[in-house]
């Protein structure tokens, strides 16, 4: 079977050429998108300003009603609160571990302080603070955008190839291939006995698309050293996220512990289950070299 040389001129090379150009164009389009966040922040700033104004009004109102509560930096107090909670969890575990070393009343006092129904740190946790950053819609936007800009041109190109060159056999590899690769190389063609080394137009598109990525990246870097959009672009963008979205919750809640609420509840239960027994009293007998407390208790039982 011979392939028409016209196919080479009108399908094979144009496809490579178009994919290459679209790849580079995409980078420029992404660059345009990059300027968008700034606009967004401007909008945000305006919103913030409006919020501030409203806050001021609210505060004035509160002053009038003598209920003025200081809420200067909500984010900061939140951060402090999370630190406090984390420390409280640790303190509670310490209390469980070493609680036997302090007297019963001291232990109960601390336990009450931590697990008190309303004020206790372990039981005081409003749901609004536990906003998971992954569900925060604003944080998803940059990732979504870059994804969209990746998928859209790909989609358009694919429909174009599929529409105009459906069923075309474009290239023949000069070496034999196993039939298992038919699915990969002859996408869009359903011929049972066709040699696997023939490549269909759609498969050729995919091959070129993925093959040219590196080249496109290199060239676009060379064209503009500042725009380093490779296929790592989404990752790079995610890394940039914290700076681009200043309203992000503090990293304390991000790293290590996703949602302290569960930990708080679990720790509270643990602490409530723990039974206290003052163990320091035993050391009196121990330094005298007398029997240990357990033996002592056994003796008591015998006496009874």
């Amino acid at each position: 079977m011979k392939l028409d040389p016209q196919i080479k001129n009108w399908v094979l090379f144009p496809l490579v050429y178009v994919i290459f150009l679209v790849g580079i164009l995409k980078n420029y389009i992404l660059k345009l998108f990059e300027t968008d966040p700034k606009k967004e922040t401007k909008v945000k700033e305006i919103k913030k300003y409006a919020q501030k104004e409203q806050k001021k009004l609210n505060e004035n109102y509160q002053k009038r009603t003598n209920n003025f509560t200081e809420q200067k930096n909500n984010a900061q107090t939140n951060k402090q609160e999370t630190i406090r909670e984390m420390q409280a969890i640790q303190r509670s575990t310490r209390l469980r571990l070493n609680g036997n070393l302090i007297s019963k009343e001291s232990y109960e006092m601390r336990k009450y302080y931590l697990t008190e129904p309303q004020k206790g740190i372990l039981s005081n946790r409003s749901a609004q603070k536990a906003v998971n950053p992954l569900f925060d819609p604003t944080s998803l936007m940059p990732g979504l955008k870059s994804n969209l800009s990746n998928i859209l041109p790909q989609f358009i190109l694919m429909t174009w190839v599929n529409f105009f060159f459906e069923g075309f056999i474009v290239v023949k590899f000069p070496f034999p291939l196993s039939d298992n690769l038919k699915k990969m190389f002859q996408y869009g063609i359903n011929l049972k006995y066709l040699n696997a080394s023939y490549v269909s137009s759609l498969s050729w598109y995919f091959l070129v698309f993925f093959g040219l990525r590196g080249v496109v990246d290199m060239i676009s870097v060379w064209l503009d050293k500042k725009t380093v959009y490779s296929y790592f672009a989404p990752i790079a963008k995610i890394r940039k996220m914290p700076t681009s979205t200043p309203m992000m919750p503090p990293p304390v809640s991000l790293s290590g512990v996703r949602d302290p609420t569960n930990f708080l509840i679990a720790e509270k239960e643990n602490l409530q289950l723990y039974s206290h027994k003052f163990s320091v009293a035993d050391s009196e007998l121990e330094i005298l070299g007398l029997k240990t407390a357990i033996l002592d208790e056994k003796e008591k039982k015998k006496d009874k």
């Binding site: 007297s103 320091v280 050391s283 009196e284 121990e286």
Partner: peptide, 13 residues
């Protein structure tokens, strides 16, 4: 008594 116990414990450890 607590003091005595703590003194003993301090000696012990």
């Amino acid at each position: 008594i607590l003091a005595r116990q703590y003194f003993s414990h301090s000696i012990k450890i």
